[in-house]
Amino acid sequence: MAETLGSYLLLSSALFAVGLFGVLLRRNLVAMLIGVELMLNAVIINLVAFARFAGADPGNGQVFALFVIGVAAAEAAVGLSIILTVFKARGAISVDRLEELSG
């Protein structure tokens, strides 16, 4: 596969789709969180690729990617702690147990 922008985008799109489906279909809360992380990773690939191929300044995209990585870390921390409280309250981390609030 040639090193073109297209191939990177293909990869990132696939990754994004995998992440998205993970979020939409997995029942486990942690798995859903991982899905979100995958989506963020797809974005990172996008950013870096765009910076490399289309950007005026490659550093710009890389900085952006670093920020995203930082946010992703925060996300994992916050997410896991919330999952923890859910687990304490419900004794399970399946999304099926989170259907009490409706209407």
Binding site: V23, L24, L25, E99, E100, S102, G103
Partner: peptide, 17 residues
């Protein structure tokens, strides 16, 4: 309308998308 708010998170996300 309120029944759209089914309580299922993944349904919400799918709906949005």
């Amino acid at each position: 309308a309120a029944s759209l708010q089914s309580g299922r998170l993944q349904w919400y996300l799918s709906l949005t998308l």
